[in-house]
């Protein structure tokens, strides 16, 4: 069954999950936008400018990093290769665009993050499904009965774990009702995602380790979880001071 699924959504068709997740996530975010004192139009514009900056910024940073190579064939700047993309640069541009739009439209920072949380959570599910479909991520060997065969070994089905964890996180985020304190929904999502990464990264074989033994992903996720707790407490504290 997994093989049939992976053949059906073999790359580059696995990207369909990301497109579907972006559409569904935005639809869900729209439905709850007004709870966070953001109009649907503002939310749509925020996402549109963020995604546009993400795509353009990712390619632009990649071009700037390899300017001498692109100078040999400038039209390659517009090539369809998704690998000519710098993810950190893309995120930086998206955040900048969203921040500029948010400030010009006077949208609250925490309110907009809360409104976008369903979008982020559904996108995480789509990302997990796309990883499951492309089949290029493999787990560590296991004797667990739910292990899957990879070459000559039974390995942890890490992409299944990723999908399951993101679905549970989405369920948790969606059950939040009226948001009493701006920022708490987003920070809860970020904390749950960090916690699930601490747990799941243990089942990924990693080529590089921190201090020779610690998995980078787990250490960064632990630091992110600590930051989330500090920010949650800070948000709750600021609310009780102002309220």
């Amino acid at each position: 069954m997994l093989e049939a699924f992976q053949n059906l959504f073999a790359p580059p068709r696995h990207m369909l999950f990301l497109v579907a997740a972006a559409w569904l996530g935005l639809t869900l975010s729209e439905r709850r936008a007004e709870r966070h004192t953001i109009s649907k139009d503002d939310l749509n514009n925020l996402v549109f400018f963020g995604l546009l900056a993400f795509v353009l910024g990712g390619r632009l940073v990649s071009v700037l990093q390899n300017i001498a190579i692109f100078a040999q064939k400038p039209l390659d700047i517009f090539s369809i290769n998704a690998n000519l993309f710098d993810s950190p640069g893309a995120f930086a541009f998206a955040l900048l665009a969203a921040a500029v739009y948010g400030q010009r439209s006077q949208i609250g920072f925490w309110n907009s993050l809360d409104a976008l949380t369903p979008f982020f959570a559904v996108f995480a599910v789509g990302l997990g499904l796309s990883h499951l479909a492309d089949g290029t991520i493999h787990g560590t060997p296991t004797s667990a009965p739910w292990g899957i065969q990879f070459q000559d070994e039974t390995t942890h089905p890490v992409s299944h774990y990723e999908v399951l964890a993101s679905l549970l996180t989405l369920g948790w985020v969606w059950r939040f009702g009226q948001n009493p304190r701006p920022g708490i929904i987003f920070l809860s999502f970020a904390a749950l995602t960090s916690a699930s990464q601490i747990l799941l990264q243990a089942f990924y074989p990693v080529p590089s380790l921190l201090l020779g033994q610690y998995r980078n992903g787990q250490v960064f996720a632990w630091a992110a979880l600590l930051l989330c707790f500090i920010l949650i407490e800070s948000r709750l504290g600021s609310e009780s001071r102002t309220g």
């Binding site: 290029t136 601490i198 074989p205 590089s208 033994q213 998995r215 787990q218």
Partner: peptide, 28 residues
Amino acid sequence: TLIAGAAWVSLSVQPGPVAAADPAPQAG
């Protein structure tokens, strides 16, 4: 929660980089 997380990180240390041992069609 942070103590449990740190304990799990310590329990799941990897004895060494897999780069010398396990070939896989995966970057790294």
